[in-house]
């Protein structure tokens, strides 16, 4: 009992939400940040989020940035912990904590910071596209 009888395809409507000026600007920022193609990210968002969350994307993104900046964890800030786990819920919080821990371990082992952050972002990319 989990299917809908009269379901309509919302893909086109969701796409139109995402190509609005502010949404598009934010989407492109995220895409270049984690290294995903814009269309691929659009497809992922359309498949995984509902219409109202897509409409609310800019506000949630800004709230998540503010939450990231409020904390004193610089690695979390660089990875965009709140952006991808709570702001735009594409990565589960437990998985995000795991990625954060792995990145910190890499830094502790002496890996240069840009390299460790890039590896963390690659893990986020993987989690988003899963």
């Amino acid at each position: 009992m989990s299917g809908w009888l009269y379901e309509q395809d919302l893909m086109v409507q969701k796409y139109h939400i995402l190509i609005a000026t502010r949404h598009d600007r934010i989407l492109r920022t995220i895409a270049s940040d984690v290294g995903i193609g814009v269309q691929e990210l659009r497809k992922t968002l359309i498949e995984r989020l509902d219409m109202i969350l897509l409409e609310n994307l800019p506000a949630r993104y800004e709230a998540a940035i503010a939450a990231d900046q409020k904390g004193d964890d610089l690695v979390a800030l660089a990875l965009g912990r709140y952006i991808f786990s709570t702001g735009i819920p594409l990565v589960r919080e437990s998985r995000m904590d795991e990625i954060l821990r792995t990145t910190k371990e890499r830094l502790d082992r002496g890996t240069p910071r840009p390299e460790a952050i890039a590896a963390g972002k690659a893990l986020i990319r993987e989690a988003i596209l899963q």
Binding site: A20, T21, I52, E55, P58, A59
Partner: peptide, 28 residues
Amino acid sequence: TIKTDEFGRITDIQIQTPSIMNIEACCH
């Protein structure tokens, strides 16, 4: 969020209404 040209025409506009955030908070 508004952008105007020298003739007072609106070249770009984005409206973020409060209901977007509130309905999202309400439903999720």
